[in-house]
């Protein structure tokens, strides 16, 4: 291998010059992850302080009594001259939520609206994802990008854009009336319809992406096999494609449902005065009536409601990971 001017023998005869001479016994190995473990302290502390601690504070305030003070709630721990004297906790805020009925209605209404929005999103997203997954690879990429692209444009502004379309004096009503299809503007804004539309529109990418990834992986041969075994197209879809895309359906639905329950912006901009969604009510509870303990108790209840779907989603993700590796 060596050429004339690069004599391997000469290469050999040069002294071995490892900078770290090995004549001395080598030191004990330094842990290569030591610096990483040290560096981890910072984000760890950050999360403990700015994520876990606030959460515990919410729990604490939710069992305090509202007071006209700064901050406007009673202390959990009662300190006296000789240290801790007692714990003052009340479940009054929670029992208020259940007695009152108002909050129960709002929670149910939020769940219902999020669920309907999710189903609508699925009904539109599934055919779209199916359509994209069946395109040639290059076009697939383009179509997917077109689904994701709006995500990068401000959510608030995209929701806002619907106001101009749906308004009584908006573009759609104007167009329909000038075509003579309707004579009176359709009430499309500031009602539940607008909120559903907003949810479908805003969360469509979250529905399409997981659906697409399961549908894309789905083996076309399976459909051919089903067809070969005599299944009609529709039956093949119901018997093969639909069950196999179940993980994508569940993943997409949870990805839409979970944030939709606590959604604030969509009901605040597009909803009517009678649109009851918990995010909006909490905003008002806090900014308008300034009842911190009740707002905290509502938060805790909302979180408890969301824990089941969140854990389910995590479970799905983990299974996906295991299948992938």
């Amino acid at each position: 291998m060596g050429s004339g001017q690069h004599d391997p023998a000469a290469f050999l005869s040069q002294p071995c010059e490892h900078t770290r001479q090995v004549s001395a016994p080598a030191k004990k190995a330094t842990d290569p992850q030591l610096w990483l473990r040290r560096a981890l302290r910072m984000p760890y502390l950050w999360l403990l302080l700015f994520f876990l601690a606030p959460f515990l504070i919410i729990l604490k305030i939710s069992v305090a009594e509202p007071m006209i003070a700064q901050p406007p709630f009673s202390a959990l721990l009662v300190w006296g001259a000789h240290g801790l004297q007692g714990i003052r906790a009340t479940f009054e805020n929670y029992s208020f939520l259940f007695r009152d009925g108002y909050y129960g209605i709002i929670v149910l209404s939020s769940l219902k609206m999020a669920a309907i929005g999710t189903v609508l999103c699925l009904l539109l997203g599934y055919p779209m994802a199916y359509f994209i997954a069946r395109q040639p690879p290059r076009r697939r990429q383009m179509l997917l990008l077109a689904v994701i692209l709006p995500f990068w444009i401000s959510f608030l502004l995209r929701v806002y854009a619907w106001i101009g379309l749906l308004d009584n004096h908006g573009i759609i009503n104007h167009a329909l009336m000038s075509m003579g299809i309707i004579h009176k503007p359709l009430a499309m804004l500031y009602n539940d319809f607008a909120v559903y539309l907003g949810i479908v529109y805003s969360y469509l990418p979250f529905m399409i992406l997981p659906l697409y990834s399961t549908l894309e992986r789905l083996n076309v041969d399976l459909l051919d096999a089903a067809a070969d075994l005599g299944a009609r197209r529709w039956r093949a879809f119901v018997d093969v494609t639909l069950p196999l895309s179940m993980p994508g359906i569940l993943g997409g639905c949870l990805l839409v449902f979970i944030p939709a329950v606590g959604e604030f912006t969509i009901p605040a901009l597009l909803g009517g005065a009678d649109t009851l969604m918990i995010g909006r009510v909490m905003w008002d509870e806090f900014f308008v009536s300034r009842d911190w303990p009740v707002a905290s108790a509502v938060s805790v209840v909302l979180l408890l409601l969301l824990i089941a779907p969140i854990l389910w989603f995590q479970h799905l993700q983990n299974r996906e990971h295991e299948a992938g590796s």
């Binding site: 071995c16 490892h18 770290r20 090995v22 004549s23 001395a24 016994p25 080598a26 030191k27 004990k28 190995a29 330094t30 290569p32």
Partner: peptide, 24 residues
Amino acid sequence: ERPSSGQILIDGVDMTEAPPYERP
């Protein structure tokens, strides 16, 4: 990998615990 037991000598020097970047 750090051995669970035993010894590695390279050129007569014990390298069992040396990290990769300190080995010849």
